[in-house]
Amino acid sequence: MATLHTVNKSPFATQSLLSCLGHAKAGDTVLLIEDGVYGAAGGTGLADAVAGLGGAVTLAVLAPDLKARGIDEGRLMDGVKTVDYAGFVDLAASHDRTQAWL
């Protein structure tokens, strides 16, 4: 009974990503979209919060939103998957529910 969580706000502007990570359960996926994709880049204080998940939660990021913001995929934190729009749909279909963290 896994949940797909979407986060669309910059982690530097709101607490949405941290709150989402604090509520995600093992087996869930957290998908970063829109300004949420800034949370996927390495070299920031967020890496610790993500490492704290110990791999139980899958972290994914929407590639078109990354590209729009000029974030090279080489800068992503280890273990972050990129998906395209079709991959977003697949994730929504393969989880039991979707929860948006606005």
Partner: peptide
């Protein structure tokens, strides 16, 4: 400042999100 610094980054390409790249 704050997230405003993201406005000036290189390599922005908004074709796939359907909005104007004003960088």
């Amino acid at each position: 400042l704050d997230d405003g610094v993201f406005q000036l980054t290189k390599g922005q390409d908004t074709k796939e999100i359907g909005v104007k790249n004003f960088s």
